[in-house]
Design a protein around this nucleic acid. Structure first.
Lengths: 246, 246
DNA sequence: TTCCGCGATTGACATGGATCAAGGCGTCGA
DNA sequence: TCGACGCCTTGATCCATGTCAATCGCGGAA
């Protein structure tokens, strides 16, 4: 689990740079970022940090998927965020994390020690602005998810999750292709359940139902083929088309 | 529905200034803010903006409560945020809003036209930093709410809502008083249901149950007396004490 | 004072998803 | 090749909450 591709100290080589917090940096700013950054890798299933632990770095996801999870005293658990490549992890100005962070798949993070990063935030408006934008995007996503968790039925929840992952993994062109498209689901049934506020049995049943109804086809447990993206979004219950036209 | 107290052009008179985005501004920055700000007032129940509408201002809540609400195509509705005094409304850099904004109680906003505010954001790091902090706080709150919506039972949801409002409305000292404390619930049973992902009947039943069990006392429909804050937080299912000690 | 209407309460019943339980399928190591 | 384990599927049953409906009670208008 190394990340040999990114071992050189050059943000320009980073495949997710154009979407990450450094996307609008000047060369000298990039050089400073390079000087304080380092990579960390985790295997699927490994913890990154536990709720309440000190976290002395912030990071951008480079490869893989990380989850943010909260747990109740009796063990009930809710995934409250899914971080995909280019997403930002950590909170400047706070010493400890409030929720568990786990590697869902094999994961590579581009890390910055928190103190120098906070200093950079103070001196470099670009970064702060970009971070604000990404935080506002995350807030929008969290609010969209509140509708999913609070009001959608199991089938709609599953469809919403599949549509969201499909949108992040596929191009607009692929989504609207008449032949459909396919993608790899990075989550187990249990992780899907944790994200959707369901049990894994319900997730399994609804996946089977969507398969029976021709909304999706499954090749193995993880590979999902969507013959018609519009039919999938129609199952989400949302009143817009879920962002393809918008 | 005017806001005579705030009619003078002086942010220093604003009772929520110390928590709002302008809390760290220099005198000259405050003067600029003063020059572009204006107040708007709404009566309880009035819409502020509808989802999809253009919104040419951003604002801070000065008095009252505003709600952010999303609606599905069949009319199911989910409140995705509750804005109390000092909370920020609007998104710099975006022309339209994604969800309905309503005045839950009589409401006064301190508004800034969006373009000048964005300009200010570019030139005044304080404001951007403060806005980032407030956005990160909102994101934390949204994520906490995802746990409420996804995993808590009806009784725990109600207790969580009461505890959150109690914390925002009362001082630490009041919360830990041996005589208990009381507060005014700014929401109807239906609004509570919309926020909690429940029906109003379930809200009503669980409020009655909490009353029967002595967790709360009700004087009328809105006035809530909490004889023992610890007993209330014990009903939320959270593993921490909900923030009093923390 | 009476009536009216809205919000809240309460009851009876329906149901979606949880829970408990059994078994299938594919992969990996011996 | 086989067994074991992890992950998933499916079935039977239960229960928390939704749904539908009746009634209450307060505050405002006539």
């Amino acid at each position: 689990m190394n990340a040999p591709v990114f071992k050189n100290r050059d943000c320009g080589s980073c495949p997710i740079r154009h979407q990450a917090i450094c996307s609008r940096c000047e060369p000298d700013e990039l050089a400073y970022l390079d000087s304080i950054k380092y990579y960390r890798s985790y295997e699927a299933g490994q913890p990154v940090v536990w709720a309440g632990d000190p976290m002395d770095f912030v990071a951008t996801v480079v490869v893989g998927v990380a989850s943010l999870t909260q747990t109740m005293e009796d063990g009930r658990t809710q995934m409250i965020g899914l971080l995909l490549p280019s997403d930002f992890l950590g909170r400047p100005g706070r010493e400890t994390v409030r929720y568990d962070v786990n590697a869902v798949t094999d994961l590579t993070l581009c890390c910055f020690r928190r103190k120098p990063f906070e200093e950079l935030l103070r001196t470099t408006p670009h970064i702060g602005q970009r971070l604000l934008e990404k935080t506002l995007d995350e807030l929008d996503a969290a609010r969209e998810w509140m509708l999913v968790l609070g009001r959608k039925r199991a089938r709609e929840k599953i469809a919403s999750l599949l549509a969201i992952i499909a949108r992040r993994e596929s191009s607009l062109q692929q989504l609207s292709s008449p032949d459909g498209f396919e993608f790899l689901l990075p989550l187990t049934r249990e992780a899907m359940a944790d994200y959707l506020g369901l049990t894994l049995e319900t997730v399994s049943r609804q996946m089977s139902a969507l398969r029976r109804d021709g909304i999706i086809r499954l090749e193995g447990n993880r590979r999902v083929r969507v013959p018609d993206y519009a039919r999938l979004t129609a199952e989400t219950g949302d009143d817009s088309d879920g962002g393809v036209a918008a």
